[in-house]
Amino acid sequence: MAVAAATSAPLIDCRKAWAETIEALAAEDERIVVVVNDSVGSSNLGGFQEKFPQRLVNVGIAEQTMVGVGAGLANGGRIPFVSAASCFLTARAMEQLKADIAYAGFNVKLVGQSSGIAYGELGATHHSIEDFAWLRALGPITVVAPCDAWETAEAVKWAAIHEGPVYLRLSRMKVPTLDLPNRSFTPGKAELQRAGSDVTIIAAGTMVHLAVEAADMLASEDLSARVLNMHTISPLDIDAVAKAASETGAIVTVEEALDRGGLGGAVAEYTSATQPVPVERMGFPGFMPTGSIASLFEEFSLTPRGIADAARVAIRRKGA
């Protein structure tokens, strides 16, 4: 499941950061509870269950009730983290996400595990590439896709204190922790990973370190690529997008998700209405054929080379 690293940094499964953080938060705040659908193992919540058995509600394989119970626990004064494979959490319980969480406005944290194509060969039923588009459509839910273990921990900490519904899109893919001095996680504000002036690569989640590597490749050709870590898909950091459009004149979006309706869709919606610039949207076109994570990333060009190629296209389209 490893994805090629941008650096020699060790590759880390971010679920560990999620589990350690939620356990630490629960030790400090007894309102924090978790709700799962037989997903204790896949959510890495064995330790939580051992420490706080009364605060883990396992409804079994019943996602609609899992989300409804989350809303009810919030009504009862708890801060529930509803954790399940994102493919089931979002698709199976979509009407509950809409009516019980987004529309009712309950303070529930939805934790989508093993998102994107993390389940690789298990196929399209187990992939969660539609979630950005679906969750973006539910305005009141803040959608966050952390890019590494550090950001995962920060996002979980923020979600616990934020008053309002949140969707945390986590991955089981091993990724490097990005090496940036003085990092801080501000929801709704993109993190500048690389400065640049010819093009901006806007990436989220597992794609961020690949975008950094692509920027390094472009630098060797004297192309200056800015890289933004757009960890918050909704609401979008429109200031950062506006600056990218005005200062670099071309944008590439990269997400481990559908190539429409998600990050790329949001960027295109904004730029087309305000500052039309070339936007190359990278992602998946639809249901994936059978394949490993690596082979699917390769086929759909979600690689440093593929991203660099898209950046060159975007630069060429300037003024076209």
Partner: peptide, 20 residues
């Protein structure tokens, strides 16, 4: 107590309230 309308929503939410 919660938004309803689509059927089959209130009962799971009530369940969560009772669990709390």
């Amino acid at each position: 107590e919660t938004n309803t309308g689509p059927l089959g929503h209130g009962f799971p939410v009530a369940l969560g309230i009772a669990i709390a």
